[in-house]
């Protein structure tokens, strides 16, 4: 059996489909320059991850989590971890402030999504989506899906932490791919991978306590876990996804309507217009979170019903549908 050791976890490959992830008591920051062993860190991070994965599973997110083995170990699906991780920011903090020189605590109107390359040698640099796609770290489809999933996770986690008086400042997600090509939320989701502030006082409850030597790291980690465990009822609510499908006449098919528009534009003096083609677009809202399965479903709908493959082709972009939920926030506040 092969075992991979990370900075805070060991991953043991059990078989073709499953791995066992063990959480150690190690904590580290700044690419491992600062590291330490903190008693109970492994247990707390593991149980927090278990709890959050179970919550996300409940909302329909596809995750690698299968079950809890014991207090420091999870059974997970075997995946190939994508070399790009996604960070979602609701409030400015951490590397965002260092990189741009902005102060901590700026609330973003729309959550910011950032991609980072997992590359210790270059200190996990920020990467644009187009570079990540160009360098074949992820496909365009994967990048779109990763962003959509991250936004949906953000929406769910904000609600969950709000229930226990914590403010979700930012978090990091890692994604893995199964051999079948399914994209899954992977790694861990814990106080090590997010920033949480006490809602009333703004007190830091996360790994920044370690980074900034604020002390009582595990006390606060344990407090987060205790509050999560105390939630009586996970709120019922359905994250939505929205997709825009664009249907085009194939290049080989004459487009009389496009021709008419072209002639009309030329007559109006828009001489730089070289050609026009007219297509259709459909906007569909799904009561499901973004996922590889949803992507396949949209593909089937587009190929079999929305378009006639003889004369048309299509493309689509899946997005997390947040409009409705933004309204809900206003009501809550």
């Amino acid at each position: 059996m092969v075992t991979y050791s990370g900075k805070a976890k060991d991953v043991k490959v059990l078989n073709d489909k499953e791995v066992q992830i063990s959480f150690r008591d190690s904590i580290s920051a700044f690419d491992g320059i600062k590291k330490e062993e903190l008693p109970d860190k492994g247990i707390t991070s593991c149980l927090t991850s278990v709890k959050l994965f179970e919550i996300l599973d409940g909302y329909g997110f596809a995750t690698h989590y299968i079950s809890k083995i014991d207090e420091t170990q999870m059974l997970c699906k075997k995946v190939t971890i994508l070399p790009v991780e996604v960070v979602c920011r609701n409030i400015s903090a951490g590397s965002f402030c260092r990189r741009y020189g902005y102060e901590e605590g700026i609330r973003f109107e729309k959550p910011l999504i950032e991609f980072f390359v997992k590359d210790d040698e270059h200190h996990d640099p920020l990467i644009t989506e187009s570079v990540a796609v160009q360098m074949k770290l992820v496909t365009e489809n994967e990048a779109i899906l990763m962003e959509a999933i991250t936004r949906a996770v953000n929406e769910v986690l904000i609600k969950i932490f709000d229930l226990i008086s914590l403010q979700l400042v930012d978090f990091k997600l890692e994604f893995g791919k199964t051999t079948a090509g399914q994209l899954l939320l992977a790694d861990e989701i814990s106080a090590d991978t997010m920033r949480l502030w006490e809602k009333k006082t703004g007190e830091k409850k996360d790994k920044d306590r370690y980074r900034q030597d604020l002390g009582d790291v595990i006390v606060h980690y344990k407090d987060i876990l205790a509050r999560l465990n105390a939630i009586q009822k996970i709120p019922k609510y359905m994250p939505l996804s929205t997709v825009q499908v664009i249907i085009r006449l194939r290049k080989s098919v004459l487009d009389p309507a496009g021709e008419v528009i072209f002639r009309s534009l030329s007559r109006k003096g828009f001489n730089s217009v070289e050609s026009t083609r007219l297509g259709k677009s459909a906007e569909i809202v799904f009561n499901a979170v973004p996922s590889s399965e949803l992507q396949s479903e949209i593909e089937e709908i587009s190929a079999k019903i929305l378009s006639n493959p003889l004369i048309e082709d299509f493309e689509f972009k899946i997005q997390h549908h947040s409009e409705k939920n933004e309204k809900e926030y206003v009501e809550e506040e």
Partner: peptide, 16 residues
């Protein structure tokens, strides 16, 4: 044609 019982498709007249 849409049910594929017959082959092909009928699309916009050339004259629009």
């Amino acid at each position: 044609c849409e049910t594929k019982i017959l082959p092909g498709v009928l699309t916009t007249n050339l004259s629009t």
